[in-house]
Design a protein around this nucleic acid. Structure first.
Lengths: 141, 141
DNA sequence: TTTAAGAATGATAGCATTTATCATCAAAGG
DNA sequence: CCTTTGATGATAAATGCTATCATTCTTAAA
């Protein structure tokens, strides 16, 4: 019930800063990372406000919520659909510069009858850095 | 540290039943659903055992862990890679019968240098049933 | 078949992330 | 200004999962 039935959303300094912080990085941060960053500019901000606004921004289409694994969410300030690579060694999430194929959604509709409005594609493996550093030391997370 | 360094895994009645339950459904159940089902056959089973074995089975390649949204994981007793459709109205997760394109992994390696070992593809939208029942009543989850 | 090693269990406590509650504050429109 | 009500900060609470530990059970070797 973040935006209630009305869908009316007020403009607040907090939400403004949160979006600013989200847009300032390509690291797909967690809610807590955003919290720490926003606190640098607004020391009295509440963690609840971070969660509330991350949810609101996602619903508004200003951000994406990513979830790889069950423990916590990551957020992406780039709301345009794009694909991600998740490194199983170092845990980083990397934006991929390969074309988004919306044709897949039509294919699903035609073959299965389920009307897809969006899709997500993620790759898992060893990122470029972890290959060269051939580090068997799983310093994940 | 489920299977430690040795990787040695013993055969237990509990794990057997858990895999049995997992294979008996196409509903992509949660850990708790599996727990309830296993309890019907083994009333004294512990929830910890469910989580431990779901993790072990996933590591053994006997199951898949899915995570849509941050709240909980779903598990899939079909370990072969396949794609899913997630209905945004009723919340069900449906197996899709469209071909898995491993060529995507090669494309990522060539274009980005990140070595993908696997990939996941999910579609979101209105499933066939929810379209015909045109139910605006979001009985999600 | 006995025995020893240690993997797996059940029970429970603990942890981390996220959500709900509520009194107060402030944005938007008259 | 004044009113309405969405948003906030502080905090409690819920949820999902993991860690701990004494005990039990599997396995393989003696």
């Amino acid at each position: 019930m973040a935006a209630k039935q009305t869908g009316f959303v007020r403009k607040t300094k907090q939400r403004e800063v949160i979006l600013e912080v989200l847009r300032s990085t390509k690291s797909h941060p967690t809610a807590d990372w955003v919290y720490q960053e926003v606190r640098k500019k607004m020391p009295n901000v509440s963690l609840g406000t971070i969660y509330r606004n991350l949810k609101t921004l996602t619903e508004m289409g200003e951000a994406l919520e990513l979830s790889y694994g069950s423990t916590y969410s990551r957020f992406d300030g780039n709301p345009e659909n794009h694909y991600h690579f998740v490194c199983e060694n170092c845990g980083s999430v990397i934006d991929l510069d390969i074309p988004v194929t919306d044709a897949l959604e039509r294919e699903v509709a035609e073959k299965t009858g389920h009307k897809a409005a969006s899709h997500r594609l993620e790759f898992y493996g060893l990122c470029r850095d972890c290959q060269t550093n051939d580090s068997t030391n799983g310093s994940l997370h």
